[in-house]
Design a protein around this nucleic acid. Structure first.
Lengths: 218, 218
DNA sequence: ACCTGAACACCGTTCAAGT
DNA sequence: ACCTGAACACCGTTCAAGT
């Protein structure tokens, strides 16, 4: 009488699978993600997924590309530094929403959407009339900052979430002899002494450095 | 008559386990690493490992800390920028030897050795008389660069190793319409046009920026 | 063309039994 | 105190069978 599956999903497609997988990873993390769990969430058999996705690896590739698609592409209307700042902020925001994505981003071969995004960043730097060496290194520095900073931030918040009072404040009292400078740093984090836009602060350090290295010959 | 195990390892200990696990990860990558494989390599049963290591997670924590132990601690004899450059180079070198370690570094809670290393970096920045905000952000920027740059570099060489001619040169011919700037960038990589010490170049960008932000008030 | 259950070769880890 | 095989609950994926 009653249907077994809540939403039988007559015709599965890749987009639905990626959506379900992303939503699952958002809630439970990439480690907990399995083909079986994705299938459960879609109310279909595990092997049905393999009609639309070659294997788990390809699914993860698709998931990352779907996330990157949500990043604002750089708009050429402003000066190049402002343009980079905006798209980097957007990337940073998107990665914080999907914490699992930053690790996958850094370890997987880029899909079409990510390649398009990287191409757009290179275009901005090139059309800013920066010398080739600055474009080359600037690209590396900026993408490194987007991925690397988000990674550190996500790792830090994950530690705080799991250990919070136990580790953090315990650490401060117990370890202040062994690691005095580290204790000070953690305290600064907890007290939000040095608040403000840390991501943007370091990004500006890089962008200003690039501008300077482009201005006068090396 | 003949002994079953080549080296029976009468008394196992944690250091031996970590050494075997690191060597295995170096050769086959972190994904292929399993408790069973480590036990095989040591010629013991899987469950013997659990007498010296709580679980796989703790083993990986220990592996990262063992790798970090190989990084040269910053020596205070030079000026702070030179000191940071040296220790960062050392960290970079160590991470390239153990490519799996950079992902684990970024995702795990720091062990004692890594905490000691971070403390040493903070000490250098603090004793350089940089203002507190610069120490705070500089620490983030420098550690981000060490981890983030190595991560990108390892990912890039991994892609080149697997796809080499197929992807790279194929990519150049096929994709030059869709991703013109990216194609140029990949070509620059392949031709080694912009060679030299890219890691150090971007690090100097950051260090010089920090010095400047410390010199004149913001 | 799409779906799927059974089966296979792997995991990490618990437990109870050995020395 | 240290070791270990059997067993359990999971994996990703192959295959053969269904519609």
């Amino acid at each position: 009488m009653t249907k077994k599956k809540p939403s039988p999903v007559r015709h599965l497609n890749k987009a639905q699978i990626l959506e379900a997988a992303i939503s699952y990873a958002d809630r439970h993390g990439a480690d907990a993600l399995s083909m079986r769990k994705v299938a459960d969430q879609l109310g279909c058999g595990v092997m049905s997924l393999y009609n639309h996705v070659a294997n788990k690896d390809e699914m993860l590739d698709g998931m990352v590309d779907s996330v990157v698609a949500k990043i604002e592409l750089p708009a050429l209307e402003h000066n190049w530094k402002e343009t980079m700042r905006r798209t980097a902020e957007s990337a940073h925001t998107v990665l914080l929403i999907h914490p699992w994505a930053v690790t996958e981003w850094s370890m997987r071969v880029p899909g079409p959407v990510r390649t398009r995004y990287m191409d757009a960043i290179l275009k901005v730097l090139t059309e800013a009339k920066l010398p080739p060496r600055t474009v080359y290194s600037g690209y590396h520095a900026i993408t490194m900052h987007i991925v690397g900073f988000s990674l550190q931030e996500i790792a830090y918040t994950k530690i705080l979430k799991t250990d919070l009072a136990e580790l953090a404040s315990d650490f401060i009292e117990t370890m202040s002899d062994a690691y005095p400078y580290m204790v000070d740093h953690v305290r600064a984090h907890l007290d939000d002494e040095c608040d403000g836009d840390e991501f943007g602060f370091i990004l500006d350090l890089i962008l200003d450095g690039l501008e300077r290295s482009g201005g006068q010959p090396t």
